Simulated scan of single mutants.
Amino acid sequence: MSVQISAADVNKLRQQTGAGMMDCKKALIEANGDFEAAVDYLRKKGAKVAASRQDRESNEGVVIAKATADGKRGVVVELNCETDFVAKNADFIALANKFTDLAIENNPASLEDLLALQIDGQSVSEIIIENTGKIGEKIGISKYETVTGERVISYIHGNYRLGVLVALNQDIAGLEEAGKDVAMQIAAMNPVALDKADVDTRTIEREMEIAKDQIRAEGKPEEMVEKIAAGKLNKFYKDNTLLNQEFVKDSSKDVRKFLNDTAKDLTVIAFKRVQLGS
């Protein structure tokens, strides 16, 4: 004899799980009205949905950047989904914030460690699988970055599409605005490194080769190639390393001078820039 499932029961399960009405009704029927078994059924269904969507692209989503209450550490998390529609949903944004807050509280060493952390007895991985079932799209955390410093400033740009962390070497009054200005610089100008010494060898070699090929194509004599290429490399450093970049809000100075003018010897010691889907 089949158990009668009332609309009130379906609604109760829907409120409890966030799953769709028809999915909740089917789960209660399959579980003969047992709420715990119905929740398990929905979670298993979610796992199946997650598995069946592994080949789907999930390049939409949100990027959340936050700093700890004491301003000494910052984290940035990218939570992805398949469509812009889901990315703009308040519940999806709240889920991304929940994962970011968890990272702020627990300081996991890696993305794998973040996925293993628990909220109300469920790991982040399990919560992702469950929400894949609810939402009907492949979702997942693709990036987790962190920085530490005397003062860390966080910045979110473009409706959660880009997050920046800036770690400063000093913590004195009035740094918030300067830190935000540098974060906006990073968002806009996308530096490849903090300073000249931080550019990796492979990038330098590639830039030098490109410069030399351009110079030779212009017909310059071979004895001038190295010298001109070195000049082009210096231009690359000026355009692409944060402290040497022209400050966007005042082109008369670079970022290094802007910081030093704000407070003596103030500088950036680390930064992270996470752009959605890149």
Rank of each mutant, 00 (worst) to 15 (best):
S125D: 13
A90W: 06
A103D: 10
L111E: 12
K98S: 07
V62Q: 02
E112H: 11
D101I: 04
D101N: 10
A96C: 01
G74H: 11
G71Y: 12
G74F: 14
G71L: 15
A109T: 15
E105V: 12
L102I: 09
D70V: 10
F92P: 01
S110E: 13
D91L: 07
L117A: 09
G74Q: 11
L114Q: 11
L114T: 13
N59R: 14
S125E: 13
D84C: 05
T68V: 13
A109P: 15
L114N: 09
K88F: 02
D101F: 03
V76T: 11
L102C: 08
A94T: 05
K88S: 05
C81A: 01
E78V: 00
L115M: 13
F99D: 00
L111V: 07
N59F: 09
D91T: 10
N106K: 15
A65W: 08
A103Q: 08
A87N: 07
L117C: 07
K98W: 01
L95H: 01
A116Y: 10
I104Y: 06
F99L: 00
N59A: 14
L102M: 10
G61H: 00
A87Q: 05
N107H: 14
L102Q: 10
Q122A: 08
A65F: 09
N106S: 14
G61S: 00
T100A: 05
A87M: 05
D70L: 12
G74Y: 14
K66W: 08
L111D: 10
S110F: 12
E82A: 06
N97E: 11
A87F: 04
N80M: 02
I93K: 08
V124R: 03
A94N: 11
S110H: 07
L115Q: 14
E126F: 00
A90Q: 13
D101V: 05
K88M: 03
L79D: 01
F85E: 09
C81R: 01
G61D: 00
L102E: 11
K72M: 09
G74D: 12
T100V: 08
L111I: 14
A96D: 00
E112V: 13
N106I: 11
L117K: 12
E126G: 01
P108M: 03
D101M: 08
K66D: 13
V63R: 03
R73S: 15
A94Q: 09
L115E: 14
T68I: 13
D91H: 12
I104S: 05
N97Y: 03
T68Q: 14
P108L: 04
I93T: 03
L79A: 01
E82F: 03
D101E: 15
N89L: 03
G71F: 14
I93V: 13
A65D: 12
A116I: 10
E60S: 14
D91S: 13
V62F: 01
S123P: 07
L102G: 06
F92R: 00
A109D: 15
